[in-house]
């Protein structure tokens, strides 16, 4: 699993907003091109991005292994045709090139995940999206990170308890609905306690926002993002 790791790389020192901009610029141009030359150029950019964030390509590929299954499947699906000649290589190749650019988009996003702590992402959200929606989205994202391990433990308990009560012999619908009821009611009990605690700590619409400031490094990064985005029109 890919996650944030403290490090001193250039990617770690960039503002989360410039990293988001680069990802969006990269995706925009990748979604606009499937030519071989464009793919070669995009590969170079993706490799540089991974290098800058010190993420190994293998590790990133492994993190997206389920996506890879579908990305390999797509060209096969495209190539198969009903009736002679049964295999249409040209269709398959078109789809393979399309799948490959998706892989590049995934790899580039791995660099953000590795180099950006939640705190910075929350700050970026709250400083980019104004008003109440930005405040809720920022705090909400922090809450999701916080509650993942808690709910993971809950779900493990639920599954163990179900297995202990011969749950494996029950119907699939029964099992899914039991997980649903127990999972949701436990999660909501936690949410209700969380809501009290947030109110007790004056949860407000207008808090002091987390510190975030652009450094000299971020201007070239934004320029790269703009160039990438504009290259979508080439």
């Amino acid at each position: 699993m890919l996650s944030y790791e403290p490090d001193g790389t250039l990617a770690h020192r960039l503002d989360p907003r410039s990293k988001l901009a680069i990802q969006i610029g990269f995706a925009a141009t990748a979604l606009a091109h499937t030519g071989l030359r464009a793919l070669a150029a995009l590969s170079v950019v993706a490799a540089v991005v991974l290098l800058v964030a010190r993420v190994s390509v293998l590790e990133a590929l492994y993190a997206y292994r389920y996506a890879l299954v579908f990305l390999t499947l797509a060209p096969l699906l495209a190539a198969v045709t009903f009736g002679s000649p049964w295999i249409d290589l040209e269709d398959g190749a078109t789809s393979a090139r399309a799948s490959y650019r998706v892989l590049l988009i995934l790899l580039v996003s791995a660099a953000y995940v590795r180099s950006t702590p939640v705190r910075a992402s929350r700050a970026a959200i709250q400083r980019t999206i104004p008003g109440k929606p930005g405040q809720l989205l920022g705090i909400g994202v922090a809450l999701v990170f916080r509650f993942l391990p808690v709910l993971q433990a809950d779900l493990r308990t639920i599954r163990d308890a179900m297995a202990a009560r011969l749950g494996d012999e029950r119907s699939a619908v029964d099992r899914a609905s039991t997980i649903g009821i127990l999972g949701l009611s436990r999660a909501f009990d936690r949410a209700d306690r969380l809501a009290l605690a947030m109110q007790a700590r004056c949860f407000a619409w207008n808090p002091t926002l987390p510190a975030l400031s652009l450094s000299r490094l971020d201007y070239p990064a934004f320029a790269v993002a703009v160039v990438l985005a504009l290259s979508a029109f080439l």
Binding site: F147, L148, G183, L184, A187, R190, M198
Partner: peptide, 9 residues
């Protein structure tokens, strides 16, 4: 709070 916890779930 419920929306956030459900998102995590």
């Amino acid at each position: 709070a419920r929306a956030a916890v459900l998102a995590a779930l």
